[in-house]
Amino acid sequence: MSTQPSRVKVWCDGCYDLVHFGHANSLRQAKLLGDHLVVGVHSDADITRHKGPPVYTFDERCKLISAIRWVDQVVEGSPYVTSLKTLDQYECDFCCHGDDITLTADGSDTYKEIKLEGRYREVQRTPGISTTGLVARILGKASRSPWTGSSFQLSTRKIVEFSGGEARKVGDKVVYVCGGFDLFHVGHVQFLEKVAELGDYVIVGLYSDEVVRGYKGADYPVMRMHERLLGVLACKYVSEVVIDAPFHVTEDLVNNFLIDVVVSGSLGTGEEGVEDPFKYPKQVGIFLQVNSESDVTTETIIERIRRNKFQYEERNERKEQKEIDLINDKHS
């Protein structure tokens, strides 16, 4: 008599600060190694002790990780140093992490114990993106990180890998939203979660860098369109993305994608003198406005970093120097 194969549970953990497509790509790769992905999120206190103050709050980081389409379970406040006890507590077969090294404040490898026991797997770190690098961009500093310093090239394969969810079905109620989705944050997630409740298939129209600059100014967006694209695609509430979407939701756009409802956040563009991008859907009665019930915006995230500029500069310098030293040790 045949028996069902046992389910393989994979453990990942991290700070997941300024959650970006590099984090999502690591979790995507980890999920491919098993059937059920458990993700531990470290506390603000632990991150501050070992790395420096996080930008996103603990609740924000947990909410963002839970919205990534490959994550099955989130463990809040997981220990900074990963132990066999933690893996066994959550019945995980092994732990997975990127091919860089994470260290404690005293320079110890946070995965040393599970590596010695053979319960550690590695996936490829995504080049060209890191929390350290994003903070450096916002502060107008050049990143010295050996990982962030390399470039990331978007390919059709990567878009396919990040695209998920069920295919659109006949009769699905299609909901359309649009925006820049820069520095993907908890306000975006809460908005998209509410939007997903309004229909069966959510299409996000993603503005180009030029369009975002047109209504927000020369300092925006912080993240380039291909970076923002992967961040949006990784969200489990999103079914499809229109790349380089028009600023104005036109009749052609609505007809081409068979859109039933067009939704905007309560903040809108917030720019005086800008022609209403939702003029057409309002005229035909398919427009709705949704309040994310979050006061977090891209601007408030940038303000957090600039307000604590010296703390984040010091954190970045320590982190980048550790990475440079590790690279040098490997090649010595």
Rank of each mutant, 00 (worst) to 15 (best):
L192Q: 02
L198S: 15
I259V: 14
L206W: 04
G268Q: 07
V238C: 05
F287R: 09
V189Q: 11
V212H: 13
E227M: 04
E210K: 14
V238K: 05
E240R: 06
V195Q: 14
Y220V: 01
S292Y: 04
F257Q: 09
L267I: 10
R304Q: 09
V238M: 09
N291D: 15
D276P: 02
A245G: 10
F287E: 10
Y237N: 07
I302V: 15
F191K: 01
S292K: 01
G217V: 09
E272Y: 12
K236P: 03
F287Q: 10
K236D: 05
E251R: 15
I286L: 15
I259T: 02
E317N: 12
N255F: 07
G214P: 04
D209L: 14
D295G: 03
S264M: 13
I286V: 13
G285D: 09
L230V: 03
V249W: 12
Y220S: 05
H188Q: 02
Q283N: 14
R224V: 04
V241P: 00
S292C: 06
E299I: 00
V238N: 08
L206C: 08
A196D: 08
N256I: 03
S266A: 14
S208F: 10
S239W: 02
I305E: 00
I302Q: 01
S264L: 09
H188M: 03
Y237H: 13
Y207M: 04
K216R: 13
P246D: 11
D209E: 12
F191I: 03
V254D: 06
H226N: 07
E227H: 08
Y220C: 08
E313S: 12
N316V: 15
V204R: 08
R318F: 15
P277S: 14
H188V: 00
G231K: 06
R315C: 10
N291E: 08
D200W: 14
E299F: 00
G265W: 00
D219H: 14
V204K: 08
A196I: 11
R228E: 05
L230A: 02
L253Y: 07
H248P: 04
V263E: 01
G217R: 11
D244H: 08
E317V: 07
G214F: 11
S266T: 12
H248S: 14
D244S: 13
V189S: 07
G268I: 05
G205H: 07
V284A: 03
N291G: 05
L288Y: 10
T298G: 03
S208T: 13
F191E: 01
L253M: 10
D276A: 14
D295F: 03
Y312V: 02
D209H: 11
E299Q: 06
V232H: 02
K279W: 09
E313D: 08
V202L: 13
